[in-house]
Every structure is written in structure tokens, then in C-alpha cells.
Design a protein around this nucleic acid. Structure first.
Length: 259
DNA sequence: ATGGTAGGGATCCTA
């Protein structure tokens, strides 16, 4: 089962990219973030024509998550449990073929110590509690998404420049590591131990600004986090880096794993 | 410290 996560930065702006990538890479499950569209406006038909079922949780202009799957999608949950009746569409969870999956769009946080940063930490706290609950089921699960956090300095092009700034600060890293250390596996890193050659770093996001892509100034902030039962079956994982180099690309590249 | 780009949709917000 090939499970991919991709922040597409608007489903409507990226529809052709998505369809080409689906045809070329043929994932079984796709976890999308930043669809930026209400559910009634979601362009479902061209995706269904490729044989995918859909579960969408969107809103106008911002955020929005979705699950695409060739197999039936069961037990759909919208919204991060415990996060109240949140107006921000950042979490959708479902069960596919006895594997629980989630598409997660962790708040960016904008600036450390800002109000938005506090919202990010609160979200991560709720995610921690929810993962703790999920682990009690002792099932295979894969939580994919744009976590907006680079776990370590090896996941950042210029860690000194980014020291204690957003995506890299200690409070957000600690908040996400706390969840990881409950017993999850960072799927991509598990398949690519530290020490990748220059130019082949596992970055997943390159800012549109300042020629970040051209200069390979990237970050690894999109992750696939696996439960022990899923990690035991992990066969491979990688970044579809070439996607980022296309015309009118999303600023994120897809990340996938095979379980 | 600033500003660089993109998307949505409204003349600015979010990333």
C-alpha cells in the first residue's frame, strides 16, 4: 500500500499537476493539505475518473485537507479530536484497508511567541493526546501531513540562520518530538538515515521567495509518522522532488511511503 | 532587519 502526503497549495490551482502525478506514481492513498476550497467546490470528478474515492474537509480560502483512496474510505473523522469546534479545517482521519490514516495541516505559527504560534502549540498538544489514544488500539496507522516543523538541524538548509525561528524553534520541536517519542516512526528518515549527500537532502518544502528552489534552500517539514504496527511493515519512503521543479508547482513536494 | 513569491479573493491575509 503506497501512501503519499502532499501540500498542494490550492487544489484548483494544482489540479493538472495532481492528475499527472497520480497517473505517473499511482499511489493507493493520498493525503492532501491546503486544498483552499469548500467541500461543495472541490473538483471531485477528474479524481474519481482515475479510480479514487474522496473524503474532503475544507473551508473557503485557507487550509483544507482531503483523503484520496482507491479502496473504500471508512470511519471518517473531520477535525482534530479535542480541538473543540475549530473553524480551521486542518485534520481528517479515516480507515482504509484496516490502516488508519490522517491528513494533517499543522498551523504554520507565523512568528515564535505570536498568538498564531500559541495556536500551533495548542494544536500539537491536542495531536499528542489524540495519538496517545490511537496507540491504545495497537493498530497500523500512518499520520501524514504538513507539520510545519523540521525535526532537526539536518532537516534545514541553513540551521544557524533559522535558529529559534518558525519551523525550527525549540518549543515547537519539543511539542512534536513528544508525540514522536510516544513510539511513532518518522517514515522518511527511517528509510534515509542521516548523512545524505549534498543536493540530495530530504527537503519537502522550498519557499517561493528568494530563489529558494533554485538554490536548494529547503526544509523537511512534511512527514509520515507511523505506528509500530505500520513501521514493522515499512518497505520504502521517498520525496517526489522533481514535482517541485515543474512550472507553477506547489511549494511542497509529495512524500510517500510503502507499507 | 527586510523583502523576496504565490494563492485566494478582496483591495489584504496567510504562508
Amino acid at each position: 500500500m503506497k501512501i503519499a502526503t502532499w501540500n498542494i497549495n490550492s487544489i484548483r490551482a494544482r489540479m493538472e499537476h495532481l492528475l499527472v502525478w497520480l497517473r505517473e506514481t499511482n499511489p493507493d492513498v493520498v493525503l492532501l493539505q491546503e486544498t483552499k476550497v469548500t467541500d461543495d467546490q472541490f473538483p471531485t470528478e477528474p479524481i474519481e475518473d482515475l479510480g479514487y474515492n474522496l473524503a474532503v474537509h475544507g473551508q473557503k480560502s485557507y487550509n483544507g485537507v482531503a483523503i484520496l483512496s482507491k479502496s473504500p474510505i471508512e470511519d471518517i473523522t473531520m477535525g482534530l479530536p479535542g480541538n473543540g469546534d475549530d473553524s480551521q479545517a486542518r485534520y481528517i482521519e479515516a480507515v482504509i484497508h484496516n490502516v488508519r490514516v490522517a491528513s494533517i495541516y499543522v498551523p504554520n505559527g507565523q512568528e515564535v511567541r505570536s498568538e498564531k504560534f500559541q495556536y500551533k502549540l495548542n494544536f500539537l498538544d491536542h495531536l499528542y493526546n489524540h495519538v496517545k489514544q490511537l496507540l491504545t488500539y495497537e493498530e497500523a496507522f500512518v499520520l501524514g501531513g504538513d507539520y510545519n516543523i523540521a525535526f532537526t538541524d539536518q532537516d534545514v538548509y541553513d540551521p544557524e540562520h533559522r535558529r529559534e525561528r518558525i519551523l525550527c524553534s525549540t518549543p515547537e520541536r519539543e511539542a512534536l518530538r513528544k508525540t514522536l517519542y510516544l513510539g511513532l516512526t518518522d517514515g522518511l528518515r527511517a528509510m534515509h538515515p542521516l548523512g545524505t549527500p549534498k543536493g540530495q537532502e530530504l527537503y519537502t518544502w522550498w519557499d517561493y521567495r528568494a530563489g529558494s528552489w533554485q538554490n536548494n534552500q529547503g526544509f523537511r517539514i512534511d512527514h509520515l509518522l507511523l505506528s509500530p504496527q505500520a513501521a514493522d511493515r515499512l518497505q520504502g519512503a521517498d520525496v517526489d522532488r522533481d514535482v517541485r521543479g515543474q512550472e507553477k508547482a506547489s511549494d511542497h513536494a509529495p512524500v510517500w511511503c510503502e507499507v
